[in-house]
Amino acid sequence: MRSLFIMLLVLATPLVLFSQESAGRPPVSISYFSNYGFQPGIKVGTAFSLAGDSTRQWLISPQLGVFTNPSDDTHTLLNLEAGLKRPKPGKNAYTTMAIGLGYLHQSKLQSFSVNLGSGQTGDRQRVGDNFVMPSVSYEYGWATHRKISWFGKCALGTRLLGRNEHSMMLLLEFGIKL
């Protein structure tokens, strides 16, 4: 789990630096990423403009995120969203509505042992499951600098086609775009 976080941070850092130094390059986002607000995680992503004008822009956005419930499970999400970004006239703000399709991997703690003398836990057995997750999302962002904007995002998805039954997910994000 820790290595996943580190990997995402390592991945995000050069992208952020690259983005800051390259005018006109796609923005890089890094955010707090959570299922229902309490399974904390991190997500990095970018977005490419496909078409549009000053009032609307069609985007496509690849993202990679991970969130965890420390004593239970960890989810890794590889997601691709297509959306419509609408800048708010006269404000440094925008909204984006998008639909997404993602691959979701769940690694769940199945069992573990506890030592009756020391209380140490170990021998953690995990089980994996893979899902496809369609989603819809709404994002609100505002720029505080020419190259920096903050955003909050809410996505509603359903994990499908796994060994476990489908289940609704409410994915919340708060982060920065550079």
Partner: peptide, 15 residues
């Protein structure tokens, strides 16, 4: 603390 034994437990988290 001298007991040297372990017990396996299930993470009971229904799906």
């Amino acid at each position: 603390p001298e007991v040297d034994a372990s017990i396996d437990l299930i993470n009971y988290s229904p799906e």
